[in-house]
Design a binder for these strands. Structure first.
Lengths: 253, 253
DNA sequence: CGCCATTCGAACAGATATAATCATAGACTA
DNA sequence: TAGTCTATGATTATATCTGTTCGAATGGCG
């Protein structure tokens, strides 16, 4: 009976994830065209997806963006900004390097230096840096967040409190006209505030897209930032805002 | 079936980070050209990057050092040993996972579990684990050694001392007839001793090549080890030696 | 640097699956 | 009994997948 067979096929595929037309033909002893009609019908009803040679449950991999290959937005600007920030680092410095794509680009540029001590909570950044043998690299431990591939939490904060470094290099989530730096990641926000406290100089990297953006978490006022590196497209009023806050603005070209 | 095979390959590479064409050919019993077509297709879809002899995951950050498909010695035995150790883990466990290629293989097998809390000092292991969303992953901070891509030093030790876990899973440098486990990495030795102290159960992974080897650093006596997993080629006298030490021997087959 | 083994890409051919179409059998109804 | 409707089977042209062959490219090793 048709209805029974189709319900049965549905059962089967839900258990097995995939079914082969060949097997179904044999199992129900009907022609392959009949099975094909069944599958077509079930597909139209949305229960499965037909594939060459059988069918599978929807979303095997075709639709599932397991690896969002989000190419990094504004990568060109980020690289530029990173490059403009690099001269502020000197051999012998100790640094906090915060997670972020801009800071990752920055990390890649550090190979020209010698004798740096670098503390980071970002796994990709640590991964880049350990290829430069001449550095002293410390990974800040803590809870690992999948999204950012970086650590945070009480363990990270407690670790940060044990160090005093020359410079913190950080990306930002947003900068607004009230003169505040904000960020999206609540978990990391605390760690970042602690880093700020523990660093003699603060260098913030922010391409033009970060301005007039207010993210969820207040991080620090602009006046806490010594140097802010951006690019030529920085919105005009910020030159004044930064000057008032006593922050040196560096434009990458 | 084509779609099934490709989805399967995708699963595999997401767990293993790299796949070899040769292995896939054997696993699916199809021609190498077919696998090549699969990989080409998956590459076009952005799910992986083809490399000579196989494929690897795309590096999401644009410039991480590429996971090369370097040959690990005794990889087959290591995989076997890791597989034999996996059943000793139970949902809900908390684990220390030490650095090492065997423990890395072990980590890849953990996806069958739920609700694990895992602390590791190995960057590659953390990298594998954060893809399994259902785990609580903690990176142990510390000084990053290039050779091992893992952390050690006072910071690591101090972090370890803040935890008590159910099980420690560790590789070993060597096991000798005097009943001692030894290791090559002096820096990690201290951290490892602390982990041992902080773990209720100790599981050691040692393929046959590790026996009758004495490395520089004494780690612990065999009697501290609850379960030792090895393979069929384990030298004969060790069955007695382990029995005398009160260590359960598990042979991977 | 050159040699060797392995891997790769292109092209073709054979096998298998699919879509479109028509034919048939049985059930129900008028 | 004839009409018609539905599920199924059969036929054929087309599309897709796969294995094989062979020359070129690549990587490892002396």
């Amino acid at each position: 009976m048709l209805e029974k067979r189709r319900a049965d096929i549905l059962d089967l595929i839900n258990r097995e994830k995939t079914v082969r037309l060949r097997d179904l033909v044999e199992r129900y002893d009907v022609s392959d065209e009949t099975i094909r009609r069944d599958l077509r019908s079930l597909e139209r009803a949305g229960y499965l997806v037909r594939v060459y040679g059988g069918a599978t449950l929807p979303n095997m991999y075709g639709a599932e963006p397991r690896y969002e290959m989000r190419e990094v937005i504004n990568l060109k600007e980020k690289k530029l900004v990173a490059k403009a920030a690099q001269p502020f680092i000197h051999d012998g410095d100790s640094l906090f390097l915060e997670l972020g794509t801009t800071t990752l680009e920055f990390a890649k540029l550090l190979h020209v230096h010698n004798d740096l001590t670098i503390l980071t909570n970002s796994i990709p950044i640590a991964d880049v840096l350990i290829n430069f043998e001449k550095f002293n690299v410390w990974m800040i431990g803590g809870h690992v967040r999948k999204g950012e591939r970086a650590t945070s939490g009480f363990l990270a904060e407690q670790t940060i409190d044990q160090f005093n470094v020359d410079k913190l290099v950080m990306g930002v989530g947003g900068v607004n006209r009230e003169g505040w730096i904000t960020d999206y990641h609540s978990e990391e926000a605390n760690a970042r505030r602690k880093m700020i406290k523990r660093s003699r100089h603060i260098i913030a990297l922010a391409d033009y897209s970060k301005f007039d953006v207010t993210a969820l978490n207040q991080i620090c006022p602009l006046s806490s930032v010594d140097i802010l590196v951006s690019d030529e497209k920085i919105p005009h009023p910020y030159k004044r805002i930064l000057a008032e806050a006593g922050t040196e603005l560096v434009i990458a070209r």
